[in-house]
Amino acid sequence: MLEVIDKGCVSEAHPVPLLFVHGAWHAAWCWNEHFLGYFADHGYRAVAVSFRGHGQSAIDKPLRDCTVDDYVADVKSVADSLQVPPVVIGHSMGGLIVQKYLETNTAPAGVLMASIPPQGNYGSSLRWLRRRPGQAVKMAFTGKSLQYINTPAQAREKFFSANTPEDVVADCAARLQEDSSRVSVDCLVLKLPHPDRVTTPLLVLGAEQDGAHTRKEVRATARAYRTEAEFFPDMGHNMMLEPGWEAVAERIHGWLGDRGL
Rank of each mutant, 00 (worst) to 15 (best):
V4E: 07
I5S: 06
I5W: 04
K7Y: 13
G8V: 10
H14W: 08
P15R: 03
L18A: 00
A24S: 14
W31N: 11
E33R: 15
H34V: 03
H34A: 08
Y38E: 08
R45W: 10
A48Y: 01
A48F: 11
G53T: 02
G55T: 05
G55N: 03
Q56N: 14
Q56F: 14
A58Y: 05
P62Q: 10
P62F: 11
V78M: 02
V87L: 03
V88C: 12
S92D: 03
K100W: 07
L102R: 11
E103R: 04
G110M: 06
I116S: 07
P118V: 02
Q119F: 11
S125W: 00
L126A: 14
L126C: 01
L129T: 12
R130T: 14
R131Y: 05
R131A: 15
R131S: 15
P133V: 07
G134V: 11
V137E: 08
F141Q: 10
F141C: 11
T142V: 06
I149R: 00
E157H: 03
K158H: 13
S161K: 07
S161C: 05
N163L: 12
D167G: 10
V168H: 01
V169K: 04
A173T: 03
L176Q: 09
R182L: 13
V183Y: 09
D186M: 03
L190F: 08
K191Q: 15
V198Q: 03
K216C: 03
A224M: 05
R226A: 15
E230G: 03
H237K: 03
M239R: 00
W245Y: 15
E246Y: 12
A249V: 06
E250A: 10
L256K: 08
L256F: 02
G257R: 09
G257S: 13
